[in-house]
Simulated assay, not measured.
Amino acid sequence: MQPYGDSELKKDLHAAVRTAQELGPDYESEVLDSFLSRLDSRLDANIAVRVQRELGRRQGEDAEAGPGRRGGFGSRFQYFSLVLAIPLSAIGGGTNGLPGLITAWLGIVGVNLAHSWSEAAARRREERLAAGSGRDGWD
Rank of each mutant, 00 (worst) to 15 (best):
S7T: 04
E8Q: 09
E8T: 00
D12F: 00
D12L: 03
H14D: 03
A15E: 04
A15P: 06
V17G: 00
V17D: 03
V17Q: 02
V17L: 09
P25L: 05
D26E: 12
D26K: 06
D26I: 01
S29C: 02
S29D: 14
D33P: 01
S34E: 04
F35E: 00
L36C: 02
S37R: 04
L39C: 00
L39I: 00
S41T: 01
R42M: 06
L43G: 00
A48F: 00
V49W: 13
Q52I: 02
Q52H: 05
R53V: 05
E54Q: 10
L55Q: 09
L55F: 06
G56Q: 12
R57N: 13
D62H: 15
A63W: 12
A63M: 13
E64L: 15
A65H: 08
A65K: 14
G66V: 06
R69Q: 09
R70C: 10
G71T: 14
G72Q: 08
F73M: 12
F73V: 15
G74E: 11
G74L: 11
R76D: 07
F77E: 08
F77W: 08
Q78R: 15
L82I: 08
V83N: 03
A85R: 10
I86N: 07
P87V: 14
L88S: 09
L88A: 15
A90N: 11
G97T: 14
L98Q: 09
G100N: 11
L101Q: 12
I102H: 05
V109F: 03
G110F: 01
G110N: 01
N112L: 08
L113D: 07
A114W: 07
S116V: 01
W117A: 13
E119L: 09
E119W: 05
E119Y: 03
A121C: 05
A122D: 08
R123M: 03
R123D: 12
R124H: 14
G132S: 12
G132C: 08
G132Q: 15
S133G: 02
S133A: 13
